Amino acid sequence: MNLTNLTIDDLKRGWHQTATALSCNYCDASWEPTTAIEMIEQHLTIVHGGNQSSLIHLDSRYNTLTAKQQNLLTAFATGIKDADLAKQFQLAAATIRHQKFTFREKAKQAKLYLAIYQSVFESGQTSNDLIALPEQPGIVDDRFAITEDEVAQTLKQYFDFDHEPLQLKRWPKKQKTIVMILTRIIDEIPLNQPLSEAELNAYLRPIYFDYTTLRRYLIDYGFLKRTVDGRQYWRTTTQED
């Protein structure tokens, strides 16, 4: 699932609209724009166990719910009474009520954060600002003078954002374009997590068949660093990180 291109409404219903079709958020299934919503919901139920359950248990680094929280949310969705739920989980009823309160508070925090983020980054006032890049080991020239608008347009040409996982369509010729696609590829690598070469390759291999080239350029342009013996790699940070 590509969260970058999905709205909150898309996530809540389990499908999204592209230029030519209605597409499932979880697989490659797609339908004609005139397809009845009931048919799409049937697909979500039969193939994915329902959108709500799939969303709660989504295997994504952005899903920070613990297994216990996922189970509680699944139970809350059934409408079960607090007292019965407390017995089922062998918890005090007060604990269940407190957990509901915690979920509501987190939702309020998320709402405020989203409003702040959108007011800062989606107001149209910063679209021509230069993006933050890692510190470069060589000479910094116009390859690194890249705006948000340039990145957005370039990424559309080189990635299929309807495809999961992320895949690079072709390797660009211009160095500035390479830098721009690397800014997206590096997002697939976890921060603050040392990786062996095999672990790093596991992240890069699905993106592009020549993953060794990806690895080399990520290092050359400062997005990744490695130990002298090449046994361990880690993602560098920018001011935005």
Rank of each mutant, 00 (worst) to 15 (best):
I37C: 02
K111F: 02
L73H: 00
D59Y: 14
D82M: 14
S30G: 04
T102M: 13
L112A: 14
K68T: 11
G49F: 14
Q70V: 00
Q17V: 15
T74S: 09
G50R: 06
T74P: 07
M39I: 11
A94S: 04
C24P: 04
F101M: 09
Q17S: 13
A21I: 00
T34I: 08
G14A: 02
A83Y: 10
R97E: 05
Q88W: 01
F76Q: 05
L72R: 07
A19Y: 10
T18Y: 11
P33S: 04
Y117K: 01
A67T: 12
R97Q: 11
A92P: 02
L114V: 05
L91S: 07
R61H: 06
E105N: 14
E32W: 06
T64H: 10
A115H: 05
N63M: 08
T20P: 03
A75C: 15
H16P: 00
T64M: 15
N71F: 08
A77L: 02
A67C: 12
R13T: 13
S23K: 15
I116Q: 04
Q17N: 15
L112E: 01
A77I: 00
D82L: 13
F103L: 02
K100P: 08
Q118P: 02
S54Y: 10
R104S: 11
T18C: 12
Q88Y: 08
V120Y: 04
W31F: 15
E41D: 15
T74E: 10
V120T: 06
Q52F: 15
A21F: 11
Q99L: 04
V120Q: 03
C24I: 03
K87A: 10
L65Q: 06
Q90F: 02
Q109S: 04
R97W: 04
T66W: 01
A92F: 12
Y113L: 01
L11S: 04
Q118M: 12
S54L: 00
N25M: 13
A107Q: 03
Q118R: 06
A110F: 02
K106C: 09
S119Y: 00
Q70A: 07
T102S: 05
R104K: 12
L91T: 01
G50A: 07
D82I: 10
I96C: 00
W15E: 08
S119C: 11
L55R: 06
T35W: 03
S54C: 07
I56H: 06
